[in-house]
Design a protein around this nucleic acid. Structure first.
Lengths: 118, 118
DNA sequence: TGAACTATTGAGCAACTGCTCATGTATTGA
DNA sequence: TCAATACATGAGCAGTTGCTCAATAGTTCA
């Protein structure tokens, strides 16, 4: 079975190419970090939240009204986005206003929209 | 409880703002499509595969050697990438060579790397 | 103070993911 | 024709995700 090659003696289809590409490859850490940021954008609810926040600052209540979802669901997602420093917030009385806190995110979404348009 | 507002009579924190943002918001379909493409990039293995393919065309065996993962795992992921038209392939005897089939993807990954660098 | 309101959080659950393992398919060459 | 090779695929499983529901925390104001 082919799996043995990975463990024991090595015969690749193109040993040189494998060696060369391996040196150019991004590290595990970079790949993990990259995947993490993309994973956050990999959910329709979070995409919508980030998109509406790219239009303007909004409170949890308004976001939940706009997306027609419960405040709980929105709040859970906002916590995630907060932890990843993609959104920031400020309290004003009982209301908490959220806004984007990452100049890359809006750009990434914009690029994604372009991709969609083809 | 706040949930009733979504179902019955409406009182938002800022009704006008909700209305305005709602008209500017991306549709469900767009959000879903966007999330789908980002979700694909939201896994370290797939990020690595796409990245090495952005360096050069490679067969399953070599990718599995480079990433130090089984061919089965790689093949499963390649099927996904194939279905989403992010990679293309050509057969040469027993060997199947994969390469990128989407000019946006490399760009998105590059942007992600920039984001990582901060 | 305490009732009303906005937002947050924890538990729990159904659905999904990414892998392994075993098996199947396509191609080559002896 | 048949063993070997390169890849693909289905089943299954542990871990993760995104929601709901109920409870809780902060804030305001009568």
């Amino acid at each position: 079975m082919a799996k043995e090659r990975d463990i024991c003696e090595v015969f690749y289809v193109d040993k040189e190419r494998v060696k060369k590409v391996k040196t150019k490859m991004i590290g595990d850490k970079t790949a993990a970090g990259l995947a993490e940021i993309f994973k956050v954008l990999g959910d329709p609810t979070r995409v919508k939240i980030l998109h509406v926040l790219s239009i303007e600052e909004l409170c949890v209540c308004d976001i939940s009204a706009i997306l027609e979802m419960t405040e709980s669901a929105i709040s859970h997602q906002l916590r995630l986005l907060r932890n990843l420093k993609l959104v920031k917030f400020r309290r004003e009385g009982r209301v908490v206003y959220y806004s984007l806190d990452d100049r890359h995110v809006a750009k990434l979404i914009k690029m994604g929209v372009e991709h969609e348009r083809e």
